[in-house]
Design a protein around this nucleic acid. Structure first.
Lengths: 165, 165
DNA sequence: GCACTTATTATTAGTAAGTCACAATAAGGC
DNA sequence: GCCTTATTGTGACTTACTAATAATAAGTGC
C-alpha cells in the first residue's frame, strides 16, 4: 500500500488488452514477480500473500500459467530447479545460473540482436519454425568461486528464498 | 544378444576409465540411451528392461545421475517435460523442441565453434565463470504445422513413447 | 577358481512441484 | 444493483524424482 499505483494501472491495462479481468490476485502475482524476478511459484505465493493473505497456491499456478501463455510473464526452468518467472519479456534476453548456489543473472543477447533464432540444421533434419531460443549459461558465480578456494566453509545452500537475487 | 559387442567394450572401457565397475545395469542403460536418444528416465527404463528385465526405476535414476556427472551422458530439461538424456557428449550441440508434439532434434552449434560461451554481461552484473551454454530452441515442427493448417484432426499427443524421435 | 571387500543395485517409503475436477466467488456489462 | 460467466478456492491426485537401508555382485588378492 505505498506508491506502486502507476504499476497497478499499467498491469490493469495490459490485462484488459488481453481480454482478462483485472483481479487483485492477478495484480498481486504480477507485483510479486516484478519485485522478485527469477522466483519460483512458491516464493511468488509467499510474496503475494504479503498484500493478499487469502491467496492460494493453486490460484498462483493458474495465474502464472495463464499470464505466461499471454507473454505477460516469462517462464524458464533451470536444471534441478522448479520453474522461475520474471516480468521482463519481449526482449530476447538469457540467463546465467550458478550451479553452486543457484543465483540467476540476466544476460543480454549474446550475438547481436536476434542471434540464436537461426539454428544450423543438420543436413538430414527437418527444420522447425523457431519461436524462442532460450540460452541457459551454467557456471560458477564469483562468490562461490571464492568460497571454494577458501578452506572449509562447506555451506552449499541453494537460495530458494525470496530475499535473494 | 546380437552384434553390439564393440559398443559394450567401448562403454566398459569408459566406465573403467572413470573408476566405475562394469555392471550389466550400467551397460543396459547406456545401450538404451544410445538407441533412444532424447528419452526420459522412464523410457530408458523400459528400453533397458528389454535386455535386463529385473532392472528397477531407482537404479536407472542412480545410474543416469552418476553417468551424467561423469559426462558420459548429457541431460537436459525441456520446458514442461521430464529430463531427457543422450549419449552425444563433448560437442557443444543444442536442441530444438517442438512445443506442439515434443519432438526433439539435435542442432549443431549456432555461431561457429564456442559461440554461446561468451555472454554479454550487463554493466552492473558480476560475471560468472561459464562452463556450459545450453541453447533450447522452441518452435513448431513441419508435421505439426501442417496438422494445424488442415481442418479438424485434434490429436495433440505428446510422444513420450520410446519408439519415436 | 574361491573368498572377501565394498561399490552397486533393489526395496520401500517419502517428497516437491504441479495438475485436475468441481464448488464458491466476484468482475464487469447491462 | 443484478446477473452472467470468468476467475479463484478447495481438496484430491499425479508425476518425476530423492532418501535410507538391505541385498547383491564386481573386482581384487590368494
Amino acid at each position: 500500500m505505498t506508491e506502486h499505483f502507476d504499476g497497478q494501472e499499467a498491469w490493469a491495462a495490459a490485462l484488459r488488452a488481453h481480454g482478462r479481468r483485472v483481479t487483485k490476485q492477478r495484480l498481486a502475482v504480477l507485483a510479486a514477480v516484478e519485485r522478485h524476478p527469477h522466483s519460483p511459484a512458491e516464493s511468488i505465493l509467499a510474496a503475494a500473500r504479503a498484500e493478499l493473505p487469502e491467496l492460494t497456491a493453486q490460484s498462483v499456478y493458474v495465474v502464472l500459467g495463464d499470464l505466461t501463455d499471454l507473454h505477460m510473464l516469462r517462464r524458464f526452468e533451470p536444471p534441478h530447479s522448479p520453474a522461475l518467472y520474471e516480468t521482463r519479456v519481449g526482449d530476447n534476453h538469457h540467463h546465467a545460473i550458478c550451479i553452486s548456489c543457484g543465483r540467476v543473472e540476466d544476460v543480454d543477447c549474446a550475438v547481436g540482436h536476434a542471434p540464436c533464432l537461426t539454428p544450423h540444421w543438420n543436413p538430414d533434419a527437418k527444420p522447425m519454425t523457431i519461436q524462442i531460443a532460450d540460452v541457459m549459461y551454467q557456471g560458477i558465480c564469483q562468490d562461490c568461486q571464492r568460497a571454494q578456494q577458501l578452506p572449509p566453509q562447506s555451506s552449499l545452500t541453494r537460495n530458494k528464498e525470496i530475499g535473494e537475487q
